[in-house]
Design a protein around this nucleic acid. Structure first.
Length: 482
RNA sequence: GCUCCUAUCGUCUAGAGGCCUAGGACGGAGCCCUCUCAAGGCUUAAACCCGGGUUCGAAUCCCGGUAGGAGCGCCA
């Protein structure tokens, strides 16, 4: 039995998503967060959030906000208050003191220049650049003389023998020789702790059972395990998820277009759809493409995540979005649609009920941007006709038809779907014309373009007043033209 | 350079030695349906990186190439 049954996991499962606030929430980060969330929920555990803001230079309040905004939009909130590393400096300091006392860490007085020179020399010799341990205390070893006025860094005393075995949930067993690892800095000259150290202390303190993170961290893992062991802590399980590449197979970056999660909102995605695309990127459950939230929770299995990086395919993401648009409750979609209508400068209150519009448009719109664009005419006056469509359908003949039809519609006792259907179809039949010959001029007249939901539905949604006015306007448009 | 990781249609993937004549999905092509745009239905092209083993049998296991990626900071 794999780890599929929640019951088979004995320890309480606690996962975390730990972004550093140096920018927006990246699409790759979002997927990592999703995997962490699903894994925790799946095993009746907790999913926590930690903000890794120890780099005061690069971290910003805005970035923290942007990350929360992205997570919020996706619906992946933390189970408890997020932890900020900057608020834990006292704790880190205490642990460092403790390690110094225990001899698992030591002071190093090398200057940055000295270190740079060391690295350069090693590179020149085609060696892996690493600290040579010149300040590492050993029994009987005589340390260099302490230079004046240098504030020492603290280094972790990494074991020099043996190997570290990481049994990665995704990648499988990976082993590292301790001889490959050097004594990394855990506290800077100014006393502030560094990343690898903070992660270790936090994961330990937060009781993290499963570290799910980007696979750019695999090489950090043995170091972190060694520190954990030096602290007497039990290392968690690890799952390193491969990154997401752009369509060209190169690491996703700004030049690929949207990389920030929140940009997908602007692109017209539903958060559930983006989540669905993301969960299927690098993971699968047989041939299934669409997963409800409940299904994700039930079926997601971290051990079945692909080992190789995956490319982000916008076409497929849009297809998934369309599937959601087509099947979601229109009332649920309405608020997002409202947001998009406002974005294109339209007042959503000045027209038919949003849910009704959604219901009619969703089959032909893959994104909410498209839907807003194609639905503008329901909420705002036309700002002209599509040139090609007008040339084709708003002809003298067309105008004559529209004029006549307008009179008939005006006389309709009730503005309902069956009545409208009957009116338009009957009109076309009476003229001995195919429905298209009549419907297309109407479309251009009332929607400004030759694209709209079924003509009776369009008329219904647009309403009597607007329909009659636009029909009349189209007729005079044609007559004035000639 | 060193360490670590990876490799199935264009893309996301199924595949745990015989069920593979390699399946599904997106995208592509074609046909049908049709008041527009779509949606839908049907059909179709398209892949196991290369080379050695192991085995009666390998996309699946092993080794070696090759190609890609990640890491090697007083960044995270």
């Amino acid at each position: 039995m794999p780890q599929s049954s929640p019951m088979s996991v004995s320890l309480p499962v606690v996962t975390r998503f730990a972004p550093s606030p140096t920018g927006y929430l990246h699409i790759g980060g979002a997927r990592t967060a999703l995997f962490s969330y699903l894994y925790a929920k799946r095993h009746v555990g907790k999913y926590l959030l930690r903000i890794e803001d120890t780099d005061l230079e690069r971290s910003s309040e805005d970035a923290v906000k942007a990350i929360f905004e992205g997570l919020d939009w996706l619906g992946l909130p933390s189970d408890v208050e997020p932890v900020f590393q900057t608020q834990r400096f006292d704790r880190y300091k205490a642990v460092i003191e403790q390690m110094l006392e225990a001899g698992t860490a030591y002071h190093c007085y090398c200057s940055k220049e000295e270190l740079d020179a060391m690295r350069a020399a090693q590179m020149a010799r085609k060696e892996k650049p690493r600290y040579d341990g010149r300040w590492r205390p050993e029994p009987g070893k005589i340390l260099p003389e302490r230079p004046e006025g240098v504030r020492p860094v603290v280094r972790f005393r990494n074991p020099q023998e043996g190997e570290v075995l990481v049994d990665d949930l995704i990648k499988g067993p990976i082993s590292f020789q301790n001889t490959e690892l050097d004594d990394l800095i855990i506290a800077r000259g100014d006393g502030t702790p560094t990343y690898n150290f903070c992660v270790v202390v936090d994961d330990w303190d937060m009781g993290i059972s499963h570290v799910i993170r980007g696979d750019d961290h695999v090489n950090n893992t043995p170091r972190q395990i060694n520190i954990l062991k030096a602290l007497g802590a039990e290392p968690p399980a690890y799952a390193h998820v491969p990154m997401i590449l752009g369509a060209d197979g190169v690491k996703l970056s700004k030049r690929h277009g949207a990389v920030g999660v929140i940009e997908y909102r602007a692109l017209g995605f539903l958060p559930e759809a983006l989540l669905n695309y993301l969960v299927r990127l690098g993971w699968s459950h047989g041939d299934q493409e669409l997963f409800s939230h409940a299904e994700m929770l039930e079926m997601f299995d971290i051990t079945k995540v692909q080992k190789a990086p995956a490319r982000f395919d916008m076409e497929k993401a849009i297809w998934v979005n369309h599937q959601y648009l087509k099947t979601a409750d229109p009332l649920h979609v309405a608020p997002e649609f409202d947001w998009h209508l406002r974005r294109v400068g339209v007042d959503p209150a000045n027209g038919p009920a949003l849910a009704a519009v959604i219901e009619q448009q969703r089959e032909r719109c893959k994104t909410l941007v498209e839907m807003a664009e194609k639905s503008k005419f329901f909420f705002a006056e036309l700002d002209g006709y599509n040139e090609k469509d007008a040339a084709k359908h708003l002809t003298a003949d067309g105008a004559a038809l529209l004029d006549e039809l307008r009179a008939q519609l005006e006389a309709l006792p009730e503005w309902t779907a069956p009545a409208l259907h009957e009116a338009v179809n009957g009109f076309a039949e009476g003229k001995g014309l195919g429905l298209g010959k009549v419907a297309q001029p109407i479309r251009v007249a009332i929607a400004g373009m030759a694209i709209s939901p079924p003509i009776d539905q369009t008329l219904l949604l647009l309403g009597r007043e607007r329909t009659l006015a636009r029909l009349a306007a189209a007729v005079s448009y044609v007559r004035n033209k000639s």
